[in-house]
Design a protein around this nucleic acid. Structure first.
Lengths: 319, 319
DNA sequence: GTGAAAGCGCTAACAC
DNA sequence: GTGTTAGCGCTTTCAC
């Protein structure tokens, strides 16, 4: 492995000159700089991140911590973040699980974007004591170094609920995801506000965990216990909705004749299930770019204005 | 930000003692070690990666470079890799686009797993001059520091083709993905071997780029130019197959009555389209774990035995 | 315009 | 069992 010393030796100059040349310091004339760059290239020299980071006390890297790579929701978000970060000269690294914690604590990145329910609020607040900025997408935290960029779940769900009630549904059920998560709480509150506006009572509620499997379990539970059906299931996300749909269809129920159903996220599958699932679409690519811009601005100590990301109602055939 | 010096001061000992204690050196008695750990905890000290990496000349991190986060194929693979890497005390970071190149050149990781068609063979071979190990999943490269862990596309496609021909299809077309990629070349060669075994001629071939959109374009091209249809489209992946299916169905074609179709990868959608798409399933989670194990062994300088990952034929309703 | 040298935060060889 | 110290590869201040 070649170091800056090797380049200096080959170019018969000092290491500081090499460093200046490679970092485009204007003090070095172009002729010299180009010669040095050429030699560095020939030798196959590239500055080592660890050394540069240690000296400069920054990494030009942003960490994105996600819950897992399994969900269908992250792709566009990550692509959007990467796109915009690259434009601004930052490197994006993505991690899950225990890796995220190590990377954060070891300060392997200058900033962090968190959407990982496994990382506790406490650990984030602890981290924020000497790490900034932290952008959280999946919760609301109040700390000088933490910035909340969330989806306006409440509003989107309120609008959706209004449309549902307008269609004449009067026995609505809510299907929760992981109960104490930001997404679930705010989606539920938007739904309840919609119900209250029309003085409609909540018919029933079920608790899943945002997975299709939990939707299947809920449906089976209802079927096996012969529980009175709502006339519409309003679900905290698409995956649970799809699980419920498929399970009821297996025993011959017809949607939306026997009951309606709605989702949230507008995953690709929503357009493939039969009937097509009505849902709420978030432009994740756009949102990702906005998040990246915010991190970059924050890193530059600029003043930022943060708005909740709005959703678009996608009416299809499921209610 | 607290450093090892702060801990040393607080514990009234030298920084080396702190370092030893925190790294569980047996020379430090448990009582002392625990006291120091406790103090470090209170102070909120955590070793800085850049400093440790610089000194130790390794990062305990593995980089996974992928083409993008958009495809449906990577999730399980990444989860599998992360799972097994974490078990062995390694941190996984994932990157795309230009980020991958920087991270690699700057030696931000000890090893790399590459499945990114945007990274050229040349740059990989260049990198391999002083970086090891590099595991490539999407090509075959011969270099002392590069290890090829690929899917046995040829064999899987050969087996699939045999079954197709056994069903009586005689006018088979092949739908290419990005033409000079390893996956496309080997899938095509397996297909051709199957044809040759039975002396069946290739009816026609089309060239897409592994996306659903390219499948749609191909189908539209065929329709608009009124081209003679094959009796089966053998596609280099599911997404193109689904694009083709949907486009022909829009003009009233029925599958598999009017023609058959097959895919590769067995993405989740394959089971949701109508008719359900026959495809070739790769156990990506398992494969990911195998890849991680290989990297870890390589890093420990152990001898590794690498086998191509086999696929499973999933016969459904599309031919 | 260029070079010498300090020092970032750590680990580990060496001394005691 | 603990402390002193060199040095990893860079950037940057300061001197010339």
């Amino acid at each position: 492995m070649s170091t800056i010393k090797d380049v200096a030796k080959a170019a018969s100059c000092s290491i500081s000159t090499v460093s200046y040349a490679l970092n485009n310091d204007k003090r070095i004339p172009d002729i010299t700089a180009n010669r040095i760059k050429q030699i560095a290239e020939e030798i196959g020299y590239f500055p080592m991140a660890a050394a540069r980071n240690l000296k400069k006390r920054n990494t030009d890297t942003i960490l994105v911590a996600i819950s897992d790579f399994g969900g269908p929701v992250y792709h566009e978000l990550l692509d959007g973040i990467q796109h915009q970060l690259a434009k601004n000269g930052y490197t994006m690294i993505v991690s899950t699980g225990v890796s995220s914690n190590s990377l954060l604590k070891e300060r392997s990145a200058d900033g962090a974007i968190i959407t990982d329910i496994h990382i506790t609020d406490e650990s984030l607040i602890q981290l924020a004591k000497n790490f900034r900025p932290i952008i959280v997408l999946d919760r609301r935290l109040h700390d000088i170094n933490i910035f909340n960029m969330t989806i306006d779940n409440h509003n989107a769900m309120l609008l959706m609920t209004r449309q549902i009630l307008k269609k004449g549904y009067v026995k609505p059920a809510f299907v929760h995801g992981v109960k104490d998560t930001y997404d679930n709480i705010t989606r539920f509150s938007g739904f309840m506000e919609g119900l209250n506006e029309q003085n409609i009572e909540l018919h029933s509620e079920y608790c899943g965990n945002f997975t299709k499997e939990s939707g299947i379990e809920i449906a089976n539970y209802i079927i096996q216990n012969n529980i009175d059906l709502p006339d519409i299931f309003v679900c905290a996300n698409d995956e649970m909705a799809i699980g419920i749909m498929e399970t009821f269809q297996k025993i011959g129920k017809e949607i939306p004749n026997d009951f309606g159903i709605s989702g949230f996220d507008d995953i690709e599958l929503a357009r493939y299930v039969n009937p097509k699932l009505s849902s709420i679409r978030i432009d994740h690519f756009f949102w990702g770019k906005a998040i990246a811009n915010t991190v970059v601005s924050l890193l530059k100590k600029e003043i930022v204005h943060i708005e909740k990301q709005q959703g678009t109602l996608m009416f299809r055939d499921s209610f």
